[in-house]
Design a protein around this nucleic acid. Structure first.
Lengths: 229, 229
DNA sequence: GAGGCAAAATTCGTATACAATCTTTGGCGA
DNA sequence: TCGCCAAAGATTGTATACGAATTTTGCCTC
C-alpha cells in the first residue's frame, strides 16, 4: 500500500488529532485496544505513521503503551484522577486570572460561540460532543492568558479529565448543564480577574464533586461484570 | 547492522535518557543538530529507534523537530523562558508544601546525599553535573509529594530550565552555590510546610532574577558572532 | 470434561529500502 | 564579480520485510 505524495493519506499528527477527538467524545472508551494494523488500515497509512501517532498520545497520557502488547486507551486510577484535578486546581485559577486581564472583545465573541455550541450539543443529546466542547473552553482560556507552556499542560489535563469522567462520573445520563462557563465568560468580559479566578476554582471543585472516586480504584474484570450483571 | 536480541544495543528509552542527561549537563547546547544517522551510529541502533527517542524528547520540549530538517536542541525564547518559570511558580511551592507533610527520614537522607553530591560537583568544577543534580533535587521533592502527574510536569519544566539557563544565565562562570536547597531540606525535615512553600517560592524567584531575559530574544547568527568577535 | 502444553496465528519491535525534501555546490550568464 | 539556477549530495519520511513476543487455539492426557 505505497502511496507516494498522496494528499489523501493523513499525517501522524492528523491521526493523533482524530484519535484524540474520538476519545474526548467518548466514542472510544478507556481500556479499548488500538491495534496498529487496524488503525493503519482505517486511515490508509502504514504502521510506521500509526506508531508515531500512538506514541504521541502515549506521551500525553491518553494511551497506555505496553511493550509487545500494544496501545490501549488509558484507564486512570482514582489516584490519578485526583492528581489530574489537583494539578488543574493549581494551574487553572491563576490562568483564568491572567486571561481576565487581557481578554479582548474578539475573545469574548469566540467564547460566547463556544458556549452556544455547547448548549446546542447538550440540547441535541450529543453528550460526547458537549464534553469535548466543554474541555476546549478551558483550553481557550489558557490561550487567552497567552501562556503556551501552561496551555500545553492544561490541554493534557483536560484530555485525561475526559478519561476520568468516562470512568467515574456519577450520573451518566444527567446533563452537566452548569452555569459555570457563563459566569466565567461574564467575569472575563468585565476583566474581573478576582472573580474569574474564584469562579474557576469553584468550577473545578464542582467537577470533582461530581466524580465517584471513593470505592475500589481497581476494576476487577469488565467482561466478568458484564456477564454477571 | 542487524543486531537481534543483542543486549548491548540500547533501547529508545535509554537513548532518550542519555541525550537528556547530555543536555542537562550542558554538554549538548541549544541549537545543536542531532542527526538521526549520527546518533544511530553512536548508539549502535538503526534510525527507527533513534527517531523514537528524538520524538520523545520533542514532546518534552527539549528538542525542536522540523519536518524534513531534523531535530535540534531547543532554544527557548525569552517568553518561553518566562513561561517556564511562571509555571514552576504555580506548581512547585504547593508541591513543596505537600512534600513537607509527608517527608520521611529516608527521604531526608536521600535529599541530604543529593545536596552533598551537588556540593562535590561544584567543588570539582563540574558545573554541568552540578546543574543536573540541582534540577533533580526539585524532581525529588515532587516525588516525595507523591504527585506523579505534577512530577511529570515539573520534570519537563526542569528540563527546559536547563536550556533557559544555558541561554540566559547572567554570570556564566559564577558558582550558583545557593543555600536554598539546604534551607528546603531543613524545612522538609521539620515538616514545616509553610516554610517549605515559602522557601520554594523564593528560590524560584531567585533563579529567575539570575537570568537576563530583557534584551532581544533572537540571536542573529552564531557563526557571524564567532568570526566577528 | 477440565487442565495443561504445544503449535499456529496474531501483533508488536527493529532494520532496511526507497521516495521526497532540503542543502550544498558547481556552473552559467549578465 | 555577483547573482541565479540546476544538479549532486545529504538527510529525513514512509513503507515494507522479517524477527520476537504474546495470545489464541487445538489437542492430548488425566
Amino acid at each position: 500500500m505505497k502511496r507516494i505524495n498522496n494528499p489523501t493519506s493523513p499525517s501522524a499528527e492528523a491521526i493523533a488529532t482524530a484519535l484524540t477527538e474520538a476519545v474526548h467524545e467518548h466514542r472510544v472508551l478507556p481500556g479499548m485496544k488500538l491495534s496498529e494494523d487496524e488503525v493503519g488500515e482505517i486511515f490508509g497509512v502504514s504502521r510506521t505513521v500509526v506508531r508515531q501517532a500512538l506514541r504521541t498520545l502515549g506521551h500525553e497520557g491518553l494511551l497506555t503503551i505496553e511493550r509487545n502488547r500494544g496501545a490501549f486507551v488509558a484507564k486512570p486510577s482514582t489516584k490519578e484522577a485526583r492528581e489530574v484535578f489537583e494539578a488543574r486546581a493549581l494551574l487553572e485559577p491563576q490562568t483564568a486570572r491572567s486571561a481576565a486581564e487581557r481578554t479582548t472583545p474578539k475573545d469574548i465573541e469566540i467564547l460566547r460561540r463556544h458556549i452556544e455550541e455547547e448548549h446546542a450539543a447538550v440540547a441535541a443529546g450529543k453528550s460526547g460532543l458537549a464534553l469535548k466542547l466543554s474541555g476546549e473552553f478551558h483550553i481557550e482560556i489558557a490561550r487567552i492568558a497567552n501562556q503556551q507552556t501552561i496551555e500545553t499542560f492544561i490541554r493534557q489535563l483536560v484530555s485525561r479529565s475526559s478519561l476520568v469522567i468516562a470512568l467515574y462520573w456519577r450520573r451518566r445520563n444527567a446533563l452537566c448543564e452548569s452555569h459555570a462557563h457563563h459566569a466565567l465568560l461574564k467575569a472575563l468580559g468585565e476583566q474581573d480577574s478576582d472573580t474569574a479566578e474564584q469562579l474557576m476554582k469553584g468550577h473545578l471543585l464542582d467537577l470533582v464533586s461530581q466524580l465517584d472516586l471513593s470505592p475500589q480504584p481497581d476494576e476487577p474484570h469488565s467482561l466478568r461484570d458484564a456477564l454477571l450483571a
